[in-house]
């Protein structure tokens, strides 16, 4: 193995072959996903919290482009006064212990959430076989998310000043690919056509994420670019 994520890179480049080998047990797949993804997700969350705290403090000090607000008739001095009156952000030292609790819950919650909605999407598209139930979807999601953790690793580059800004669009495109990548795992484990697996992830996005995930993604995107 050249580097720890070489298998993930191969899977992302050849998704059709990535899930051809016999599947591991659900417990094993879940452990592999958590082992790879959780430390990266924790680093990502720590970086995001730190960066958002910095952006918030800059905002409080009035470092905001007032041109746009002036067009809506907002007085720049009033805006700065309002921003200066915002309460200070909690110290990073108070936030990070909570992340140690929130990130594992978030990782497991994301896995379950994706499994539930992708399973429903696959059912709506007629991709479920009679003998393969929700457990199969849980296994497929765990395997796919273990590979998709590579995206979280690359996402850490987004915190590098200037470089992160340049990478914002490619990272968004990678996020979109990693979203539909789960469809290959679903199709392989449920033994249905790949298009059904891919479409299930799209149905999931349409049903659940039209507003919520878009808003969350936009907020994180802006927070990363803010500093």
């Amino acid at each position: 193995m050249l580097f720890p994520f070489s298998a993930s890179c191969r899977a992302l480049l050849r998704p059709g072959e990535a899930f051809a080998p016999a599947p591991p047990s659900l417990a094993r797949a879940c452990w592999e996903m958590a082992r790879v993804w959780m430390p990266l997700a924790l680093l990502n969350a720590l970086g995001t919290a730190w960066r958002m705290g910095q952006a918030y403090e800059l905002l409080r000090r009035g470092a905001v482009a007032t041109g746009l607000f002036e067009r809506f008739g907002v007085d720049p001095s009033d805006l700065r006064a309002a921003l200066a009156s915002l309460p200070p952000a909690p110290a990073f030292g108070r936030i990070w212990p909570w992340l140690l609790l929130a990130v594992p819950l978030g990782v497991l919650g994301t896995w379950l959430h994706h499994a539930v909605w992708d399973h429903l999407g696959l059912w709506l598209l007629g991709g479920l076989k009679r003998k393969r139930g929700f457990r199969t979807s849980l296994l497929a999601e765990a395997q796919a998310l273990r590979v998709a953790a590579l995206g979280t690793l690359l996402g850490l580059l987004g915190f590098v000043p200037v470089f992160g800004t340049l990478l914002a669009l490619p990272l968004l495109l990678l996020d979109a690919y990693l979203w539909v990548f789960r469809g290959f795992a679903l199709a392989a484990r449920h033994d249905c056509e790949p298009w059904r697996g891919l479409a299930a992830t799209v149905v999931h996005a349409v049903l659940v994420s039209v507003c919520g995930l878009g808003l969350l993604g936009l907020t994180l995107f802006v927070a990363r670019l803010a500093v």
Binding site: V206, L207, V208, V210, C211, G212, G214, L215, L218
Partner: peptide, 21 residues
């Protein structure tokens, strides 16, 4: 202050989850 639905903003039509919040 929450941003409105981007789909509705660009198309003028409500999306499937408009009104959910």
């Amino acid at each position: 202050l929450l941003p409105g639905c981007a789909f509705k903003h660009f198309t003028g039509l409500a999306c499937m989850t408009c009104g959910l919040t």
